[in-house]
Amino acid sequence: MVTYIIRRLIQAVFILLILTFIVFGAVRLLPGDPLLMFLNATDIEALSPEALDQARHELGLDRNLVVQYGIWLGDILQGDWGKSLHFKNANVLQMIGQRMPVTIHLGVLAFFFSSVIGITLGVIAAVRRGRWADTVATLLANTAITIPIFWLGIIMMLVFSVELEWLPVAGYTPINEDFWLSTRKLIMPVICLMIGSLGAVARLTRTSMLEVIRQDYIRTAWSKGLRERAIVIKHALKNSLIPVITVMGLQVRFIFGGAVLVEKVFAIPGMGRLMVEAVDGSDYPVIQGAVLVIGIIVVLTNLIVDISYGWFDPRVRYE
């Protein structure tokens, strides 16, 4: 197990190296020179080609791509993530440090609730197959999958914030500042972010659960005199979650993707917006830093998913 984790971590390092190198090259291929993007009307004439070359030189942008990458990597390892080209006083590590907890807060809640609610709906639908509870749960799951996040966000905002005035329209408050306000502000974004995953998880859980409750060992469990709840939770659920875990691992990526939209609609200062704005502005150091961090998170969640298989299914061996 330990060897397996170590081996996977070493793999992860290579994956991250390849990922960051590709992104490093790709952002430089994007059209648009980041040096030119945020100029003032008065300073343009002072920007002679020589001055631009000088600025480029100072930023190291005139060097060979591989050399630039090497320098960036070296700096990263020493804790210097560079500075934003756009927000000149903003240290990339600090920016990510500010934004990441927000997206993680949002993402963890979305992940948690989509998993819990999705699995519950799926289990109810499977156990009550063909009855009204199944119909309702399946309907909810299908609706959840097909609903467009953007539309849902705006509709909820109109209903719950503008009409009913129950929830704040938008914004973010850190949880340690004001727990109640923070939670109220996050209700709608979390619903938007989790809704798709919720549907996917519910449907998959239902299918997988239906498969599992037909198994011989479930009959055995019944023959032991166990309650239905004990059978579902102890005997069926763990087995039926094995395929669901894979999908939940994938949801981490979708949550980062969905965060781009949700953070924009609800004015939440998270990684999604940071990334989009950085790409728009060709803000190389920010893009690179963010990709690295998100890459690490995705690689780690994959690892956690793979390790958790072992907990769900003792037949899985790590070699």
């Binding site: 198994q215 060992y217 009959r219 055995t220 019944w222 032991k224 005199g225 299914d313």
Partner: peptide, 21 residues
Amino acid sequence: IRGGKIAMIFQEPMTSLNPTL
């Protein structure tokens, strides 16, 4: 009664035990 008074043994030992417990 199930398991307590009347117990059953099933045909397939490979599948009648829960693999995850």
